[in-house]
Design a protein around this nucleic acid. Structure first.
Lengths: 244, 244
DNA sequence: CGGTATGTTGAGCCACATCAAAATGCGTGG
DNA sequence: CCACGCATTTTGATGTGGCTCAACATACCG
């Protein structure tokens, strides 16, 4: 039972629905077929039609799209408890690539497993629909940032969102978190040049808001950052299970 | 039976799963509680926690976020067969507003209806998960456009995507489609100023690619547009049912 | 037939890109 | 323990796509 509760996905979903023993067991069964992948080697290639999805158990991954001109847009970063490639499976086409940023552990999930799980407990289907919706909400926030926030606010928002997500799975706090991303990652995620990312980070550091250095994000002034970013974590936090 | 098949949502989902009689009936039941809403009056307010979602039956709607500085970012436009506010219901918080662009007809759906439907046919849950994933894929494309495409390509991509979506529900073709959007809508969707949208449209018109005028989009050079936009409709089209 | 929403065009400016180069850190093999 | 190579970070100089401000044109609507 302890091991069941410790899965990051279970933790995440439990914030949404109060899961029964049976549902926890079904969820746990999805975590069989544990695999390891090395950093930097694509897990899903852009363009290929993929047959299975994964649940990230440990490590960080990035999903991105390469443009024909060679530039890269990072769509999102995945942390433990997140699905990898679920969209690719459902749409039966991978419009994006997924690459482990560090060495990762992930559980392989077939569509058939999902269907089976849904048949056993429809509430789990709803819970996963919730998780997918939450992912979409993050992409939407990301989109809004690109369209209507300047570089400083974009960066601030990004660092805060990441912090909130990590906190939910016990990997961070308001004071900061460990973060293996490079400034190139930030640039490709935020639609900026790496050069400009560096200047923005310097500014945030000089303004004593946040420091991004040596794989460590240190938040010096949480309220200040929230204000600069206009950050509202409503879509990430759940105040309690919505479905009894 | 004829009336069942004619629902735009049914049409869309049928492209993904071959639905049985039972599933069609369950889907049809979700379309009870038909309501009308007037153009311009918010259906969902940003910030309120909403209790029900809708399936759009006729007309166009827009989902958007207002920033504290008053600027607006349009996340997506909804056309018949699309869900309205499903994410708000699942996340139990509305991070965005939804406004009918013209007078619309929509069927109200409660969470409980969905849960019930899922319990009856898990395949329907998968189908709806597909629809949500497809929405997410569109937002992702939108995101990529904002981050890594210039204004011309962004506009071209947008017009092509919209055309493809409309074609799927029988409201457009490669030659063009009717479109009630203003240049302000385009500006807020694409993260541009209305002034610049106007200039971009002029350029596309002068280059004999596409004309946007009087609520009518006329595509004069489909291939040219596809090339400019780097448009790949894989994520919108389904070549056939994926789930037998 | 005036009012309000939308579309069109010009002038000037700024946030961020690009190009270039140096500084720093770090893993690896000798 | 050093030296080399490579990835990453940092800083400066210069260019530009798209913004803002300001008019005016057009179309629809009661």
């Amino acid at each position: 039972m302890k091991s069941i509760e410790s899965s990051p996905l279970t933790r995440k979903l439990s914030a949404f629905v109060a899961l029964s023993e049976v549902e926890l067991a079904v969820l746990q069964r999805l975590h069989q077929r544990r695999k390891s992948f090395a950093a930097g080697r694509d897990l899903v290639h852009q363009g290929q039609s993929e047959q299975s999805a994964y649940i990230l158990a440990a490590g960080w991954a990035v999903s991105y799209k390469i443009q024909p001109d060679g530039s890269r847009q990072i769509v999102d970063f995945q942390i433990p408890g997140d699905f990898l490639g679920l969209r690719s499976v459902l749409l039966h086409t991978s419009d994006h690539g997924i690459e482990p940023i560090v060495d990762i552990q992930a559980a392989e999930v077939f569509v058939s497993d999902l269907l089976e799980a849904f048949a056993q407990t429809p509430r789990l289907a709803t819970a996963i629909l919730w998780a997918v919706s939450r992912d979409e909400a993050m992409v939407v926030e990301h989109l809004v940032g690109m369209g209507r926030r300047d570089a400083d606010a974009r960066m601030a928002h990004f660092l805060l969102e990441l912090g909130a997500r990590l906190s939910l799975v016990g990997m961070g706090s308001r004071a900061g978190y460990a973060c293996p991303l490079t400034q190139y990652h930030l640039a490709d995620a935020l639609g900026l040049s790496a050069v400009h990312v560096n200047r923005v980070l310097r500014k945030l550091r000089e303004d004593r808001l946040v420091t991004f250095r040596n794989g460590l994000v240190t938040i010096e002034n949480y309220e200040g950052l929230v204000e600069l970013a206009d950050f509202d974590p409503a879509y990430l936090d759940q105040t309690g299970p919505l479905l009894k």
